[in-house]
């Protein structure tokens, strides 16, 4: 076991745990964001650099700080380590820079993007991005590609997190999906645009943090916040059969795997569940899906409101706003 302190909160975790996972065990605001790390995909992480944190004390044995910021998703903790995330100005500055880098070549086509409303990049941009861009050059674009008959690859939106390539390598057999070219010309592609024909290929859509990989059976059908997510399951021979149905009335618009509070799928689903059972009668509906992350989807009160929880949140907000009242006008000229 190793004792680490993250933003002043101490926790004891198993040896070998990464800083990010230790922070997730604490939970709350001090958890660094992650765009490329995916706990169920081996070797993922380290690439997007939004989870950078400062290690102010390396370990109890060697208290020297690590000179550079480290990727918290891939750096294991050491006993006595002191980590600064939100408490470090350097980290916030660097993260702001990384978000800006991720956005300069992103098309910002949220109004027509199917991922809008459940997009990690959108959330991150609201949280850390500036309101205007400093980048005035033509943005990078790619042609849209069909990966098989069910998945659309819109490379222009991609942030090169490599998650989908790990899905292709680890969940499906036969490696035909990878990265072509170099630098800012890098693109996700299949081997000479060969269609991916595999029972678990649809999980690429779920792991994609942005709108680069979208479900062709759902594209342009509805904004996600107009759909009603329900937990459901069916008896499936290939996968767990535990899914979320995104419905409008009686119509099932799409089927996805269930994501946890960090947007990660723990139980991947097969393509049969995803694409071939779009009748609500095929499923045993468990009830409304709770959307953990801050999202416009949860604003529609599809699930029963916990009044106690709501009251607590209002109180917290009031407490937070205390002493932040607007200054009173001094010369009275504001009176209308």
């Amino acid at each position: 076991m190793a004792k680490v302190t993250i933003d002043g909160v101490e926790i004891e975790v198993a040896n070998g745990t990464t800083i990010l996972n230790a922070a997730r065990q604490i939970g709350g605001d001090l958890v660094p964001p992650a765009m490329c790390y995916y706990s169920s995909l081996k070797d993922s992480g380290g690439k997007c650099r939004v989870c950078l944190v400062k290690v102010a004390q390396g370990s109890a044995k060697d208290p020297r700080p690590i000179p550079k910021l480290v990727a918290s998703c891939r750096t294991p903790v050491a006993d006595g380590m002191v980590v600064e995330n939100l408490t470090s100005k350097d980290v916030l500055e660097a993260r702001k820079g990384v978000v800006e880098f991720l956005l300069i070549n992103h098309p910002l086509d949220c109004p027509v993007c199917d991922q809008a409303g459940e997009c990690d990049l959108q959330n991150l941009a609201y949280e850390h991005g500036a309101e205007a861009t400093r980048y005035e050059f033509e943005r990078r674009t790619f042609d849209k590609i069909d990966i098989g008959d069910k998945i659309k690859l819109h490379m222009t939106r991609c942030i090169l997190c490599y998650r989908c390539t790990f899905v292709a390598n680890q969940l499906t057999d036969g490696r035909s999906h990878g990265v072509l070219n170099r630098g800012d010309h890098s693109e996700i592609s299949t081997y000479i645009e060969k269609a991916i024909d595999n029972d678990f290929s649809g999980n690429m859509i779920d792991v994609c943090p942005v709108g680069a990989l979208t479900d062709k059976t759902f594209r342009f059908k509805s904004r996600v916040w107009f759909t009603n997510p329900k937990d459901a399951h069916r008896d499936c021979k290939k996968c767990s059969g535990k899914v979320v149905l995104w419905t409008k009335g009686e119509e099932v618009l799409r089927v996805t795997a269930r994501k946890d509070q960090y947007g990660e799928v723990k139980e991947f689903i097969c393509n049969e569940c995803r694409y071939d059972h779009k009748n609500i009668s095929d499923w045993i509906v468990e009830g409304p899906r709770h959307i953990d992350r801050d999202s416009v989807i949860s604003q529609n009160h599809y699930e029963k409101i916990d009044l106690q929880k709501l009251k607590k949140e209002v109180e917290r907000q009031l407490e937070f706003q205390k002493g932040k009242q607007l200054p009173e006008s001094t010369n009275g000229s504001m009176k209308v």
Partner: peptide, 12 residues
């Protein structure tokens, strides 16, 4: 030209 494109700050 030579950036590998793996991590965001260098790629962009």
């Amino acid at each position: 030209h030579e950036s590998c494109g793996q991590c965001s700050p260098c790629r962009e």
